[in-house]
């Protein structure tokens, strides 16, 4: 990779696992839990956040020397809000149904702590290219968890993936359902999102002992 030095690669790779925004840095939990009942919504949310954080990090990084530090929060919020409005309008135009399901949670990307957290911790102190990579990396790390949770909740909760009936038809009793398998409707309710994330954290920390808290 001529374009990316070793450090740059680390910027993208670290947030995917050992420095994951959700499971390690504890940022951006709200949206991660609320919209993951189906895989499609999770994927769209992940893409939206990659877009907002990637571009937002570059913009903040370009402006970092001219923003007075006292009003930087308002400046950051304005940048994010503008980007989120773009996402919201695009969603409304091309996929109205989905924008209805996501509802207020598209707007809540603005206060997604991942975004402010990366602006404060990285973009304010680094150049645009590195900030861009950092933004993409962190948003992708967030997206991976989102998609994982969405995958399990949709598969176990409604027996579908992206709307396709992968486990057979629950009404006509085909596929797995013929063997007496039942959907666990509880997975679709909000508390299970918390528990699924809790289990992901458990698995991750069991595999990497260095992450265990005291």
């Amino acid at each position: 990779m001529g374009l990316l030095s070793k450090k740059d690669v680390a910027l993208i790779k670290d947030p995917l696992a050992d420095d994951n925004p959700i499971t390690i840095q504890v940022l951006g939990i709200c949206s991660a839990l609320a919209i993951t009942a189906e895989l499609k919504a999770s994927i769209v949310m992940a893409i939206s956040v990659v877009f907002v954080l990637g571009i937002g990090n570059v913009v903040i990084s370009l402006m970092r020397n001219i923003i007075p530090s006292k009003i930087r929060i308002i400046v950051q919020l304005t940048v994010v809000a503008t980007l989120v409005i773009i996402v919201d309008q695009v969603l409304k135009a091309y996929s109205y149904e989905l924008s209805k399901t996501l509802g207020a949670f598209v707007g809540l990307i603005i206060t997604n702590c991942i975004i402010m957290g990366r602006f404060e911790a990285f973009a304010l102190g680094n150049g645009p290219w590195r900030s861009f990579l950092d933004g993409i990396g962190n948003a992708a790390g967030y997206g991976i968890i989102l998609i994982l949770v969405g995958f399990f909740r949709e598969l176990l909760g409604s027996g579908t993936l992206l709307g396709y009936k992968v486990l057979g038809d629950s009404v006509e009793k085909t596929g797995l359902y013929a063997l007496g398998y039942e959907n666990n409707g509880f997975m679709l309710l909000s508390p299970m999102a918390l528990i699924v994330v809790g289990i992901i954290i458990w698995v991750q920390r069991t595999r990497n002992k260095a992450l265990i808290e005291d």
């Binding site: 508390p191 920390r205 005291d214």
Partner: peptide, 23 residues
Amino acid sequence: VPPALRGLGITFIITGLMAIGFM
């Protein structure tokens, strides 16, 4: 608490249980 669940993990699971209670 199992070591790997300490801190964040167990907090998530407790919150989930509390959410079930609130349902």
